[in-house]
Design a binder for these strands. Structure first.
Length: 123
RNA sequence: CAACUUUAUUGUGCGGUCGCGGGGUAAUACCGUGAGGAAAGUCCGGGCAUCACAGAGCAGGAUAGCUGUUAACGGCAGCCGAAGGCGACUUCAGGGCAAGUGCAACAGAAAUAUACCGCAUUAUUUAUAGUGUAAGGGUGGAAAGGCGAGGUAAGAGCUCACCGUAGAGCGGGAGACCGUUUCUAUCUGUAAACCCUAUCCGAUGCAACACCGAUUGGUUCUGUGGAAAAACCGUCUGCUCGACGGUCACAGAUUAAGGUGGCUUGAUUUUUCCGGCGACGGAAAAAGUAGAUAGAUGAUCGCACACGACAGAACCCGGCUUAUAGAUAAAGUUGCUUU
RNA sequence: GCUUGUGUAGCACAGUUUGGUAGUGCAGCUCAUUCGUAAUGAGCAGGUCGCAGGUUCGAGUCCUGUCACAAGCA
């Protein structure tokens, strides 16, 4: 699979963020809120939102890194189990800063893989 | 040993695996590198960039002991003065109310000039009026510099002795300032009240600015023609004077999504020596030190301990201010004990 | 990154220019009115003036620092 170097792409534009907030399915947990929608590209895309409420710059960076690392671990499994590709937007919450990646990883595993992996198999 | 004062340093470290930004070799692999003492607040100063360069006056802003230091500063160093502390030491917008003006609520008779009670005296009707007066009373943050004597009708710096404050003179010092057996007196407080004095200040900020860029529209600039008496508008930080340009039409350039540069070798860092009390300056050698653009440092395993605080570069420096778990070092003060 | 503005009672605002009493409306409580409620009338309570320091006899007001919140600039 050497077609593209990066396995996933960042969402950058404001329009796309707003589109996902309005039309995407939402998954809520104590660590993060996730908006998901199917896209027609060949890659999974991710966007991370860390608002001002979380804290100062260090805490915001920390939350961003933790989410990104967890997603990086989960992403290969998602591609194996599903043929479709999705856009994800993760919104960090205040508790995200204190969590470790393995906790977040197991949480994502439960919520995202559990939902979108199986969904595809049934079809 | 205890309490305290000041200054400085450090801000988890080492190794393995996966992952991220930039660079190099070069081709999907390897090598090396990658946040701070405050990166923060944006409170000052400077570089750099663009605009204006046709200026003059006024206004406006900043600073405020002296000498030095510096690219510059409102910073820093040393010294002087005042206040606080037993002391080491700390703090201070620390020029001028003796240039002028204003303000001083309530209380009080009166707040910068005055007569309520009082004390004297004059007039007559013995109670009032006039005059003189700041000794005494109470009020207040502040009551005519304080206190004693003389003096006087009673009093008053009115006079004198002693003392304070301010100014002038003299002496010392580079200066702030200090001293003084001299002379003078418009001797309440407030300039973080207006103001005066001295010194400095053009404006805007990397979202500056330069370059590339399609249909179409707008803006600005240039050129040509028109208008050009007055008026209006714009630019020159605000105002006045003054200067320049514009008002309508056509043509060309320019600009708006985005991209590239600006973007890191610089008043650089470290070490040694020399000059200086010190801030700092000079010389030599060595080092090569983040450069992203939704914005890079995380996860995990092993070992050690104090179990890791405050906190993340965004054009770059010099300061200041604020946040900060602890750990370490040096100098000094006071008290106690021992010798 | 840069440039501005605002913090006063539970809420919305005055007062800051020119320093001496902290006020207005709504909301709250009590009483009156009414068969009862609303409206109306009378009264009451409620304030670290964002925080810290300074100037002053005395700061909501003047000065300095600081903490929040909001707006603008491609």
């Amino acid at each position: 699979m050497g077609d593209f170097r990066k396995k996933y792409v960042c969402i950058k534009k404001d329009k796309e963020f707003r589109f996902l907030f309005n039309k995407g399915e939402s998954i809520v947990s104590y660590a993060f809120i996730c908006y998901v929608r199917e896209n027609k590209r060949r890659v999974n895309r991710i966007g991370i939102v860390t608002g001002k409420k979380i804290g100062n710059a260090v805490k915001r960076n920390r939350a961003r890194r933790v989410i990104r690392e967890a997603f990086r671990l989960i992403e290969p499994r998602l591609r194996e189990q599903s043929t479709k590709r999705y856009d994800f937007i993760f919104v960090a919450r205040a508790k995200t800063t204190e969590l470790k990646t393995d906790k977040l990883y197991s949480l994502m595993n439960k919520l995202i893989i559990g939902k979108y992996g199986k969904k595809n198999e049934q079809k």
